[in-house]
């Protein structure tokens, strides 16, 4: 149901060509996006110590090695604590920031938007040292809480940006109508604004999560003796890229795809219901 086009009769050659071209491009785009992932997955099942052609035959040795090595799995566990918590906190803070800059005019409004982005601009190396200095003085260095606190600083920017983009599409009349109907501003926020921004918040959370999940320089400095996954991966690199890394990347990729797929299929009814009326009408 490519809705952009109004059906003008049973056969619309131009429309058909455009849709076909669009889907072909989509397929090509996905080939590009998936190329390194597939490469990585294939080499996780190859005997090769170093990824190169020709392959040396299929093998599960890197998976066996991975499960004998508790360091990587422990690190994965740490990452699975840090990233969701950091992403959630960042989404809450990001939502307030986006809402504040969207609705209110206050002194320093522009400065706030910029300040939230600045952490992304500073080379992580220096930020990592500075964070470590701060956390040491709070006796928080080397704790997962410390990693979470710093990740929130880092990933609030992308979360805010996505939520801002979504809020910018909200007609002001929507919230005003709620007020007119007697809602308090908090009620309007919870019943009207948050549902409207839900897609943006979800997108922001996802982005914040992925940034946090992959962050390694700052994590290295603040994680102490309990590394997150990228930090553990990083310390493997002094020797060489151990294909167990490909194995764990494959597992993470497959598991997260399954989780997303499952969530998508389970949540589908709600999502369909939450669609904007405009689109439903067109479809």
């Amino acid at each position: 149901m490519p809705a952009v086009v109004i059906p003008r009769g049973p056969v619309d050659g131009e429309r058909f060509a455009l849709v076909a071209a669009g889907r072909a491009y989509l397929a090509l785009g996905f080939v590009f996006l998936m190329l390194p992932i597939v490469t990585l997955i294939v080499f996780s099942f190859q005997r090769n110590q170093y990824a190169s052609l020709p392959g040396q035959g299929w093998s599960l040795r890197w998976y066996v090695k991975l499960f004998q090595d508790d360091a990587l799995l422990a690190a994965l566990k740490n990452s699975l604590i840090v990233s969701p918590v950091a992403a959630t906190a960042a989404s809450v803070i990001g939502f307030f920031a986006a809402y504040a800059t969207h609705r209110f005019v206050f002194p320093g409004r522009a400065a706030l938007s910029i300040l939230l982005v600045v952490p992304v601009l500073i080379p992580p190396l220096i930020l990592g040292i500075a964070f470590l200095g701060l956390l040491s003085r709070l006796s928080l260095q080397g704790q997962l809480l410390g990693v979470i606190l710093t990740h929130v600083v880092l990933v609030t920017a992308p979360a805010t940006a996505i939520i801002q983009l979504r809020l910018a599409q909200m007609p002001p009349s929507l919230e005003e109508a709620a007020w007119n109907l007697g809602a308090s501003e908090w009620q309007a926020l919870v019943r009207v604004v948050v549902p409207f921004a839900a897609a943006g918040i979800a997108g922001g959370w996802l982005l914040a999560f992925t940034f946090s999940f992959d962050e390694f320089v700052i994590s290295w400095f603040v994680s102490g003796f309990d590394p997150t996954l990228p930090v553990a991966i990083y310390s493997y690199l002094v020797g060489s890229a151990d294909p167990s890394l490909n194995a764990i990347a494959t597992l993470v990729f497959v598991l997260s795809s399954l989780v997303l797929l499952g969530a998508e299929l389970l949540l589908m009814p709600f999502i369909v219901r939450a669609r904007r009326p405009g689109r439903a009408a067109v479809a």
Binding site: L26, G29, F30, L33, M34, L35, P36, I37, T39, L40, F43, A51, S52, L53, L206, T210, F213, D214, F216, L229, P230, I233, Y234, L237, A241, L245, N246, A249, V252, F253, S256, S257, L260, L261, E264
Partner: peptide, 24 residues
């Protein structure tokens, strides 16, 4: 769903993706 799969590459470590590009 399509969107999720477009974001999926992000779920593997950037540095490992870069290594994969090396061999590609």
């Amino acid at each position: 769903l399509v969107l999720l799969f477009a974001v999926a590459p992000f779920w593997t470590s950037y540095i490992l993706r870069v290594f994969a590009w090396q061999i590609l």
